[in-house]
Amino acid sequence: MGEIVQYLLNGLTLGGIYALLALGLYIMWEASKAANFTHGDIYMLGAIVAVVLTERGLPLFVSVTASVAIAAVVGALIERFFVRPFNTEPHSIGWMLTTIAVGMMIESAATQTYGSLGRQLPSILAEKPIRLGGAGVYAQELLLPIAAVATMFGLQVFYRRTRLGRAMRAVAADRMAAGLMGIDSNLVALIAFALAAGIGALTGILIAPVLPALPTMGALTGLKAFGVAIVAGISSARGVVIVGLAYGVMEKFIEGYLSTGARDALGFSLVILALLAFPQGIFGRGEVKKV
């Protein structure tokens, strides 16, 4: 019993990471119909920048804010220089290659400067584990699924109630019509990438007190988040959060009852199977092409 609860809680933490990153991919996809293979590295960047700044003696709050801000700027730059010029036609693949390249640059630059030793961010929520149904967990870990769900609802309010959010939805639905409303869709895409990168960095920061920040923490996690987003059908916020959390829980159960080695092989096989069964993603909308 305790074991199951333990896997469930740890899985939700892991799933929270996937869900938050997949939400970022969803935001970017909506605004530009392109995703971003650097997203996992932005998540890593958020964590290690916060760790480095804290180590330099900056107050936690300041380093966290700075880290998120830096990530947002990086996200905006990536949109402007590596996505927009390579996403000019409906089936463009250029952005895949350029963002993969930038992702590798960030990771290898981080390895060279930060080193390959993991370091943790201090947090009062990660000092004493809480006992829950025979399982032990840090409060910090519970923050992730909570943050994912909160971000989802926050996005919903943002998209429905604010001027910028409405503009983003308009751009997502119909770029041309959005332009005719006076909305600058390039600017909206830029902001969307910055927002997504900010959320990505925050995700890295939230997990850094529990999981040591490492330059290699991003790449695979980013790919999994991408898989989660696509399997969910990237155009549904609720979908990516549900699939993200479920994927994390599933991984922990596979780790627990089978082996750590089987985790990724099984997980990615399920991704493939899910896409075969739901070619538009589980929560996705079919796009009907008119002849």
Partner: peptide, 28 residues
């Protein structure tokens, strides 16, 4: 202002939201 060929309304948003988007440039 242009009403484009094929109308291009924002189908998954409400009628009210569409009107609000029409006034987008007038801000708050």
């Amino acid at each position: 202002a242009m009403v484009p060929e094929g109308r291009h309304i924002f189908g998954d948003q409400t009628v009210e939201d569409n009107l609000i988007l029409g006034a987008y440039l007038r801000g708050g």
